[in-house]
């Protein structure tokens, strides 16, 4: 027995490495590249305080004289060199991007997790319980689907702005963003999970569990949930890209992350003003980062969809 237990995990890892999924991944250069780009961006923003040459939010480290320094060129007054230049307030663009991406990714991950938990729960319950519970949940989903996510997010943001006292606006902005994007995105998860649950519910293994006398909760969590997760994974990846874009859009429109805590969208909003006056780097680098992030997450999601769909293989 002891032999078996010691070899089991190893052989499971070996088995996993040999699976079609991993094989597929290793054969797809696009998937590999986008996976590493995502990892690079996520890790560098997670360790932003260690990597960034400056802390853009520490006023003492800023020198207004350094404003509008072009990339890789010494500043006219101070002689300091910045890889990607500086913005109007002399903040290092490279550092602001690292910190901005932190905000973007945090909002993205948090909003998707929120939407996922809400959507999976409601979708499972709607699909398994059925009846009027299902009718109410799915009608609500239909109505919300009629309204584009970005609009719902804006409305929630607008309402929150009216409800929250003005002195707390900046502080609460990030959380309002997360709730707004999360609430506008749960429908996708709920619909997919409900659809999959309806299929799984009629399968005989669920009936076998019911015959044993298992309760609804256990059947939903232990039997159905694990079997509806693979489409959820695909949607979560694509939703992450959408959430990052939505956050950037809201912040760009000035109804998202505040200038005191800028995300990539806020940085682009700031940079837009200098596009005509020739300081192209203030807008270019955050834009490229945003595009790289969204594109690599999307590519990964696209690959996942194909890899997890056995029909297409």
């Amino acid at each position: 027995m002891s032999d078996q237990t010691s070899t089991a995990p190893q052989s499971r890892l070996a088995k996993a490495m040999d699976s079609d999924f991993v094989y597929n991944f290793r054969r797809s250069p696009v998937a590999i590249v986008s996976f590493f780009v995502v990892m690079l961006l996520v890790l560098s923003s997670a360790f932003a305080p260690l990597i960034a040459p400056h802390n853009p939010f520490d006023p003492s480290s800023l020198d207004l004289m350094n404003g509008f320094t072009a990339p890789m060129a010494p500043n006219d007054f101070t002689g300091d060199v910045f890889w990607l230049g500086t913005d109007d307030q002399g903040r290092d663009v490279f550092s602001t991007i690292l910190y901005g991406m932190r905000v973007s990714l945090f909002v993205g991950f948090a909003a998707v997790s929120f939407a996922m938990v809400l959507g999976i729960t409601l979708g499972l319950v709607a699909g398994y319980v059925g009846g009027w519970v299902e009718t109410i949940i799915m009608r609500a989903a239909d109505v919300q689907l009629t309204f584009p996510a970005i609009l719902v997010a804006m409305l929630i943001f607008g309402i929150a702005k009216g409800v929250i006292p003005i002195q707390h606006h900046d502080q609460m902005a990030i959380w309002v963003l997360i709730v707004a994007i999360g609430l506008s995105d749960w429908v996708q998860f709920a619909r997919v999970v409900r659809g999959a649950t309806l299929v799984e519910k009629d399968k005989e293994y669920v009936q076998a569990a019911r015959m044993i006398g298992r309760g609804r909760g256990i059947i939903m969590l232990r039997h159905i949930l694990p079997n509806v997760l693979s489409p959820v994974l695909v949607i979560a990846t694509i939703s992450l890209a959408l959430a990052i874009i939505a956050e950037a859009t809201l912040s760009f429109l000035g109804v998202g992350a505040p200038p005191t805590q800028p995300s990539l969208g806020t940085l682009i909003r700031i940079g837009q003003g200098y596009l005509f006056s020739g300081e192209w780097w203030i807008i270019l680098f955050p834009s490229v980062t945003l595009l790289a992030l969204a594109l690599s997450v999307n590519l990964l999601g696209d690959w996942l969809r194909d890899a997890l769909n056995p029909r297409l293989q």
Partner: peptide, 10 residues
């Protein structure tokens, strides 16, 4: 059950 492919939780 009838269908051996769906009567066991995968």
């Amino acid at each position: 059950f009838q269908d051996p492919f769906s009567s066991l939780n995968p």
